[in-house]
C-alpha cells in the first residue's frame, strides 16, 4: 500500500532512455499502473471467490423447498451455466461500461441504484472530510507544539478514548441527545433526489459528526507522530543552532518535509472514512452505498454485493494511489534526482 519510500525505484523500463531521464514520472506511472493491476486482481477475487465458495446460489436463491426443475430454470435465467471465465469476462466487460447487471432480489438495475446512492455516500464523506481534515491537522500541530505538556497529554488521552469508541455508540449517543432529548437535529437522516441543499446538509449533521469523531482521533494522532518524527531530525537541530526562531523552523524547515507524510495520513484516513461510512449509514438509515451493501449481504443478493464491494475497493485503492503519488511528488529526493 502506501509505501512510496520503501519500494525500489523503477528500473530502466522498455523505453529505458525516457524513464531513466524521468525517474519521477516512471515512479508515478508505476504507482498508477499498480493501482489498476490491484483493481483488476480484486475484481477477479470478488468474482471468483464467490464462484468457488460452497453452496449453490440458485438453490439458496429459491430456498430449500425448490424443485430441481425450478433450480435449473433459475440457473439458466441467471446465466450460471456458462463457464466461469466467460461469465467473469462478460461481467467485467459490463462493469467497464458501467453495467453491474441486475439485482437478484428485485430485478432492478444495480448501476442505477449505485448511481443514486454513491452520490449520497460521497456527499456525506466529503463533508466529514471538510470538517475533520483541518481540525485533525490543527490539533496535531497544537499537540506537537505543547508536546509532553498538559495540553498534549489531554489531547492524547481524549483521542485514545475516541479511537476506541465504536461508531454505533457515538451515533446513538448523538441521536439520543440531539434528536430525541433536545430535538435540535433530525433522525433518521433521510435524503431524496430533489431535496434543497440546506435541508440535505441539515439531514447529515449527525452522521457527519459521527464520522468526524471516528476519523478525527486517528488522523490527529498520525499527524502528531509524523510531525514529531520530522522535528527530531538532525536538520531541525541545525536550524536551531543557526539561531532561527520557532516559526521559521516550522514553516521553512519542518513543513516542506512534513507535507508528504501528512498527505499520506490524510489519504489513509479518507480511505478509512469511506469504509466507516457503512456502519454510520446503517445507524442513521441514510440511503447510501453502505446501507445498500448491508441489505444485499443480508439477503445474499450477489450481484449487488459484488458491485458494491468493487466500488468500495476502487474508492479505497484510488485514494491510496493518490496518496502515493502525492507522497512521491512531495519528496525532494525524488523530485530532484542526482
Amino acid at each position: 500500500m502506501s509505501n512510496a519510500n520503501t519500494s525500489p525505484p523503477a528500473g530502466p523500463g522498455p523505453a529505458g532512455g525516457f524513464f531513466s531521464s524521468n525517474p519521477l514520472l516512471a515512479l508515478i506511472l508505476q504507482r498508477i499502473l499498480l493501482g489498476f493491476v490491484l483493481l483488476l486482481a480484486i475484481s477477479a477475487l470478488l468474482f471468483m471467490g464467490i464462484e468457488f465458495l460452497p453452496g449453490d446460489f440458485a438453490q439458496s436463491y429459491l430456498g430449500q423447498s425448490a424443485t430441481p426443475e425450478a433450480v435449473a430454470n433459475i440457473r439458466k435465467e441467471l446465466g450460471l451455466n456458462a463457464p466461469v471465465h466467460e461469465r467473469y469476462l462478460s461481467w467485467l466487460g459490463g462493469v467497464l461500461q458501467g453495467d453491474f447487471g441486475t439485482s437478484w432480489a428485485n430485478k432492478a438495475s444495480v448501476s442505477e441504484q449505485i448511481g443514486k446512492r454513491l452520490g449520497n455516500t460521497l456527499f456525506l464523506a466529503f463533508w466529514a472530510a471538510v470538517v475533520s481534515v483541518p481540525l485533525a491537522i490543527g490539533l496535531g500541530m497544537i499537540a506537537v507544539h505543547y508536546r509532553n505538556r498538559f495540553i498534549d497529554r489531554l489531547i492524547n488521552v481524549v483521542s485514545l478514548g475516541a479511537i476506541s469508541l465504536p461508531e454505533f455508540f457515538t451515533g446513538y449517543l448523538l441521536i439520543l441527545f440531539f434528536a430525541v432529548n433536545w430535538g435540535v437535529a433530525v433522525f433518521p437522516s433521510t435524503v431524496f433526489a430533489d431535496m434543497a441543499f440546506t435541508d440535505r446538509l441539515a439531514a447529515i449533521v449527525l452522521p457527519c459528526a459521527t464520522l468526524v469523531l471516528v476519523v478525527l482521533a486517528h488522523m490527529m494522532r498520525m499527524t502528531r507522530a509524523a510531525i514529531l518524527n520530522i522535528m527530531s531530525s538532525a536538520y531541525i537541530e541545525t536550524a536551531e543552532l543557526k539561531g532561527l526562531d520557532a516559526f521559521r523552523i516550522i514553516a521553512k524547515h519542518a513543513a516542506p518535509n512534513a507535507i508528504a507524510p501528512i498527505i499520506n495520513v490524510v489519504a489513509l484516513n479518507l480511505a478509512y472514512l469511506v469504509v466507516g461510512v457503512v456502519v454510520v449509514e446503517v445507524i442513521f438509515v441514510y440511503p447510501g452505498m453502505g446501507q445498500y451493501l448491508v441489505d444485499a449481504v443480508t439477503i445474499r443478493d450477489m450481484p449487488v454485493v459484488q458491485a458494491c464491494g468493487l466500488v468500495f475497493a476502487a474508492v479505497y485503492i484510488i485514494l491510496n494511489m493518490i496518496a502515493d503519488v502525492l507522497g512521491i511528488l512531495a519528496n525532494p529526493r525524488l523530485r530532484h534526482p542526482k
Binding site: 536538520y235 537541530e237 541545525t238 536550524a239 543552532l241 543557526k242 539561531g243 524547515h253 518535509n257 525532494p332
Partner: peptide, 23 residues
C-alpha cells in the same frame, strides 16, 4: 538565538543528516 548562526556556528558530524533535504 541572535548569537547562534551569526557569532557562534556549528559543524555537525553527519552533514548528510544535518542539511535539510528540501532546500
Amino acid at each position: 538565538r541572535g548569537l547562534r548562526g551569526s557569532k557562534i556556528c556549528y559543524v555537525a558530524q553527519s552533514a548528510a543528516a544535518a542539511f535539510n533535504p528540501a532546500h
